[in-house]
Design a protein around this nucleic acid. Sequence first.
DNA 1: ACATTAAATTCGA
DNA 2: TCGAATTTAATGT
Length: 241
Amino acid sequence: MGRDSAVYQRRRAPTARELADIPWLHLLEPGMRERAVAGVVVSQAHAGDYVCRTGRPVTFWFGIVDGLLKMTVDNAQGDAVTITGLPPGGWFGEGTALKREPYRYNVQALRKSLVAGLPVDTFHWLLDHSIAFNRFVMNQLNERLGQFVAAREIDRLHDPDTRVALSLALLFNPVLYPGVRQVLRITQQELAYLVGLSRQRVNESLANLQAQGAIRVEYGGVRVLDLRALRSHHLGEMRGP
DNA sequence: ACATTAAATTCGA
DNA sequence: TCGAATTTAATGT
């Protein structure tokens, strides 16, 4: 059962450490940064909390500093279809913020997460005044387009190992999710929800990918050893000399 | 579904 | 504030 108000209630200014984990802040021109920092707020979301919901007016451009979120849309039958997972460092909603349209999807915390928000007015001010910010947003839109194309391809695949491998590879995208380094904090249950497989099957796939040397399975997370091998899993395992 | 292991929390000094 | 005891979460089969 999710609450959508909690995220907005426990809002506060970010700490210096939290600001350091907001990737685009470091790219801004000196004069721009202070204005942006003044606008940023953070909020603790508990598992099940909604960060934004379909149809609600745009309030913030959102990012995730820590934790794990999922983006869903409601289909014709009324149930939620998972579009993607959002690991640390990910920012989303620029499309709706640009047009000041209502959100077109739900974003919900899979577990306790720290969510950051830039007020939509500040977002527009930065678009009007910062070339670096424009570059970031453009790059972000472009990168996510590639991500959605890849996600559709994954949906068509049948081999569970490949689905898990490619889904993981997307979550390890360093451009969209720079907060994810070598280890992605995600449980096998959470990964199962995102990929659409049973936890048992995900566990088996992870073991296979580990045996192939692409990842290492850790308690509460996955460590990448070979991102290229994960990305090209559908081409068959590569065996180096 | 169940057994095992890791981590988080509680509690008494 | 330490660490042993207990509970909860995650994993492996």
